[in-house]
């Protein structure tokens, strides 16, 4: 069952082509790294048990599958596929994803460690809800209502997670 639009299919075919190139390159790099991995001769191990054996096979198989994927993607008729792929990358969902990613990274890499975990989490949850209810949407919610909800959830969840994990289940938090 496939409900996807032709434009989406064309974009995926082109994305597959790009991925195929990455996979072939990755497979070959892994093969090279495994080939040049120490074979532990001084330890007199059996040559059929060298540490690089399985990664070497996997690298080659990945490159082979990548090549097959590229061949398959290339044989799919994808008129306007590159343009469709370009549109996907600058579409509204892509912007939402990037905003979420930026917020999540800022929380994890900067806030956690700089503030106590519960405070960092409260701040993250509050900003997240406001961002997606007021800004990253075509139907913004009422700011006051949204703000009250965001505050309530942030405080409850931030404190709740701290209490449940650290106090009840004795799990250490970041």
């Amino acid at each position: 069952m496939d409900f996807e639009e032709p434009g989406e299919r064309a974009a995926r075919a082109r994305a597959d082509l790009l991925t195929a190139i990455v996979l072939v390159a990755l497979g070959l790099v892994i093969f090279y790294l495994s080939w040049s991995m120490p074979r532990l001769e001084p330890r007199r191990i059996h040559p059929a048990t060298i540490p690089g054996l399985v990664p070497m096979i996997l690298g080659l198989t990945l490159a082979f599958c990548g090549a097959l994927l590229g061949w398959r993607a290339g044989s799919i008729e994808a008129k306007g596929g590159w343009q469709a792929l370009g549109r996907v990358l600058v579409s509204r969902p892509a912007v939402r994803i990037l905003a979420l990613l930026a917020l999540a990274l800022f929380y994890t890499l900067v806030l956690v460690g700089w503030l106590p975990f519960w405070a960092a989490s409260m701040l993250f949850i509050f900003t997240f809800i406001l961002l997606f209810e007021l800004s990253m949407t075509d139907q913004p919610a009422d700011p006051l209502r949204s703000g009250i909800w965001a505050l309530a959830i942030a405080v409850t969840a931030g404190w709740g997670i701290f209490f449940v994990f650290e106090r009840i289940f004795l799990v250490r938090l970041p």
Binding site: Y107, T108, F124, F128, F132, I153, A154, V171, P174
Partner: peptide, 30 residues
């Protein structure tokens, strides 16, 4: 979802950190 997913992400951070207590595992999660 806007109100739920923020909390779920915090749980993801906790979930990946707590077992070995290394921030490295949080980066692995990301």
């Amino acid at each position: 979802r806007e109100r739920l997913m923020a909390v779920v992400y915090v749980l993801c951070v906790v979930g990946s950190f707590a077992i070995t207590q290394r921030m490295f595992d949080v980066y692995v999660m990301i």
